[in-house]
Design a binder for these strands. Structure first.
Lengths: 204, 204, 204, 204
DNA sequence: GATGAATGAGATTTCATTCAT
DNA sequence: TATGAATGAAATCTCATTCAT
């Protein structure tokens, strides 16, 4: 057995928790499942985490902060609003591609769990909406986006579309693969920015 | 106490369950909470339902079948595809307006609960996506919709946008009220069909 | 539906209870099972019996009193002790042949249930042993039986042998059929009275 | 409190279960009774056993395998058939003398419980009958035993006699004590092998 | 008598958390 | 750190019995 630093052991437990939560869901997952999956002793989890909740909190916050950071950076850049939304979509899709279990856990067990962790982390989740809304608002002010919907509303629709696509993958309702992932980025942005409708050819 | 038929008593229990599930979430809700809320004895719930699960299954299926019926009818009509999507959005939003607790339970505890009831009812949920995808596909074939995204994909984005808006209301992240509900219908369809972007003025 | 007298209805319930108790055992049998099997309303059982226990008590006592009566009559007769034991064995075996379910219930749920109904009806059960012991004792006094074992002890061995044979049928460990039933009567008495051993031929 | 190995703790729980099952019967015994009797926490029982059933299964199988082993050894020896039966009787009686509660539980809750554990362990129980039947059969072939009854039948009668004697002690219908135990061994074998009857003096 | 809805005590089982070593 | 035995508070579900009609 290779010796591990405390941080590495912590990491091993978190990674095991991701797999277990993804497989069984947070509620059905037992602490012993995580310990077994991590190959550590039952009680050891409690040296690194105060509770089972804290494990999920940690998983969520670590990843969500990265997401917020990414969105902030996109926000600060000077791309077109459509390209900013594309960059955000790309980041989220690539997050899923890179670690689907982790994204599944975060979405299913936190951002969509309105009665438990979702409510607990609501402010954190809302930060993302706010940043996206800022992008939309800036787009409207620059004239690139129409102002027929409120920025906050548009942000929800945009984020909802992405999350549902990820849910489609998680549920195996949508096909997955490198091509599909790339397509999804374009599709989401095309749908939300360009709209489904064909431009009406003006008469004359 | 007014005499009740068996169906009415069943209804009383279902209604109480909606309130309890909405308030505490399915997992945290105890059967005794439901019985208390309904004002009936503990065991009576098991006279009408085989298990706590069956209560949620019943709530979901009853409502979801109504939704499927509504979408089917819209589908069968001869409205413009945009108007069909508007009608569906309207139906869902009005469902929420009419009984927010029930819609909260259905969305939070079933359609978004990928590891428990969501998986169990996946086929039923997918039916809705399929019907919506049919509308998109018909729109594409008639030339009203562009075919830059697959119908299935568009259906997911559209449904995700609606669900996220409802989630916004559930989370109290978006303002609620009659005006907001009506606006939401327009906004969702505007966003998905018309797109966020301003039409680029073609040079000359 | 044919009208029934109260006694007939009572009988219907008792008969149904026999089948249910035989099939599932007293503990696993639900009152509703009995009502269903009898084709009567759930609560009706409580018009005829004070409790589920009382149903089994009734089944046992009715039958056991018949058995005690039969043994008493045999006892009072002037047969050989071996023939008396044969008559008793015959009565019990024929009871099983006539209504195996009832005998199964009485043996399995009462006479062998030392921690529940067996203890409750111990005195009644003991009466049978006493009567049998009387026969053995009389046999010993008349010189027909050796007095190498106490009458009480012999009675237990005799009754135990019969009950185990019935258990063999109940468990399907011994073959059943008219021939087997008749054989069993002889076998039990042969074994207990004659013994398994061949008589040692005295030298000279 | 003295430290205990896992096996010792397991033993403590099993021993407590024996006392509780003997006292109240398996059905009436609550898991909490066992825990209290063992002086351990409620949940610990579930650390060592999967269920309440498994506790009884364990008690039965452990002891019954010892019995089967003992019978097998007797079987393999070259004693007279009568002496073999005596040895088996002796083993069972001594088992009762050594741990009456355990034997009570095994007999009352398993071997005589045709609708629950008896059926479950029927094959195991039957093994004992088969081994005994083998002894009888060998006795018949050697001419020591008459062949007026089938070996299987004789085995049932023999075992039934023993079990009923034990039941007599359990029910307190037969007197107990070292002398009675020794007597019982002789009595059972005398009764089954020698028979109750006095040899008929052949008329010149 | 007849019905079956209503009651609620109780039992098993689970499992997060603690803790002694 | 590391271990896994020990704890005990729930929670679900069952079902005998009662009772209003």
């Amino acid at each position: 057995m290779v010796r591990m630093s405390a941080d590495e052991k912590r990491r091993v437990i978190l990674d095991a928790a991701v797999r277990v939560f993804a497989e069984r869901g947070f509620n059905a997952a037992r602490v012993s499942d995580i310990a077994d999956e991590a190959g550590v002793a039952y009680g050891l989890m409690y040296h690194y985490f105060r509770s089972k909740d804290e494990v999920l909190d940690t998983l969520f916050l670590d990843r969500w902060n990265v997401l917020l950071q990414a969105i902030s950076e996109v926000d600060a850049g000077d791309l077109d609003p459509r390209d900013k939304l594309y960059a955000i979509t790309g980041f989220i899709v690539d997050s899923y591609r890179h670690d689907p279990d982790l994204m599944k856990v975060i979405i299913v067990e936190v951002t969509r769990a309105a009665n438990s962790f979702g409510r607990k982390h609501l402010d954190k989740i809302r930060e993302a909406f706010d940043l996206i809304a800022d992008i939309v608002e800036a787009g409207q002010q620059s004239g690139r986006f129409r102002d027929h919907v409120t920025p906050r509303f548009a942000a929800m629709a945009f984020y909802g579309a992405i999350e549902q696509v990820l849910t489609g993958w998680i549920f195996d309702v949508l096909p997955q693969g490198d091509m599909e992932f790339e397509q999804a980025k374009t599709f989401v942005v095309e749908t939300i920015c360009g709209g489904l409708e064909a431009p009406t050819t003006s008469p004359i």
